[in-house]
Design a protein around this nucleic acid. Structure first.
Ligand code: SF4
Ligand code: SF4
Lengths: 156, 156
DNA sequence: TGATAACAGACCAAAATGGTCTGCGATTAC
DNA sequence: GTAATCGCAGACCATTTTGGTCTGTTATCA
């Protein structure tokens, strides 16, 4: 539970991969699939969804492939997740969930749980794909006195 | 994906329920199950796990039942989740996941994703069961100039 | 015009989830 | 002492989600 699906993983890898190329250079499914050892067919589906949601531009021809429609710094993790998995929520009673929770009539913890959900979504929305390139230094590199929104130290 | 399981939902409801009783007053599975319309058998299992993990004390007799071992303000949401679902992680490559990720050799986004995971766990660890009782006011109540760690306003 | 690349969707196996059923063990009220 | 009341334990099962395969079609251009 509370786990990212493989499809999301693949999507993030693919987007990250393309982010490290010139904006106009195309990447094929084969390129990405070989680079990360991802089954081609399933990666194909994932990229299709990303392109339908306007995150990627597909070039439908020989020597074709995919290009990013926007620079990765303008794309959030949440956008990618939503593109491949649809609207998400940590609760069975969240907006867009088809099944209705049996406890919803008697539940008295819904609103606080929705607050947690909001925070998690906020987190994913405010992290861009660009940050996937920033490794956390294991030693040194801390910007003294500077903390992010979770109270954790910033790095150079 | 990224959804809390029903068992966790039940656990949180149950813990919340007991938190609203005197520490020494026992609650039976039947009490809780009727209050929230939860199937008795499955709630039983959940409470067993909570008791094995030391969050609940079971009283094994007629007029018996469960009591909290600690006040709810000293129990985090994460503790409850870990008790009923085991160690969690949003990644397939997280500690304690049995299956190994096929991409782990070529993955170049692991460390940033682990940072997200860390933030989410931090969030759950630093929210106590007590906060499940605090509804967010829809209007008014904001403490001016006071924000929590996610930059959201605090309430009275 | 055919090789190349994306598109589309049916199909399937394995795993996770949510739930049921059946019987046992401890305690204590009577 | 024993029967009623409670939790304990685990096998079992149906449904949903997931991860993946297979087969074929369509658009483009060298
Ligand atoms: S139990 Fe409450 S919070 Fe959980 S899904 Fe049902 S309504 Fe939402
Ligand atoms: S792809 Fe990278 S981050 Fe995702 S599970 Fe595999 S190793 Fe971990």
């Amino acid at each position: 539970m509370l786990k990212l699906t493989k499809k999301v993983d693949y999507a993030l890898l693919a987007m990250h991969f393309m982010g490290h190329q010139d904006m106009d250079q195309v990447s094929t499914i084969r390129d990405i699939s070989e680079n990360y050892q991802i089954p081609m067919e399933i990666l194909a589906k994932v990229l299709q969804k990303l392109s339908k949601k306007g995150l990627l531009q597909s070039h439908h021809a020989p020597k074709g492939g995919y290009t990013l429609k926007r620079p990765i710094r303008e794309i959030s993790i949440l956008e990618v997740i939503n593109a491949v998995e649809g609207p998400i929520g940590i609760l069975s009673c969240s907006e867009g969930q088809d099944k209705v929770c049996q406890q919803i009539e008697n539940c008295d913890i819904r609103s606080p749980l929705e607050r947690i959900q909001g925070k998690i979504l906020w987190l994913l929305e405010n992290m861009s794909l660009e940050e996937l390139s920033q490794a956390v230094p294991t030693t040194g590199g801390v910007i003294h006195g500077s903390f992010d929104l979770l109270g954790q130290p910033r790095y150079h």
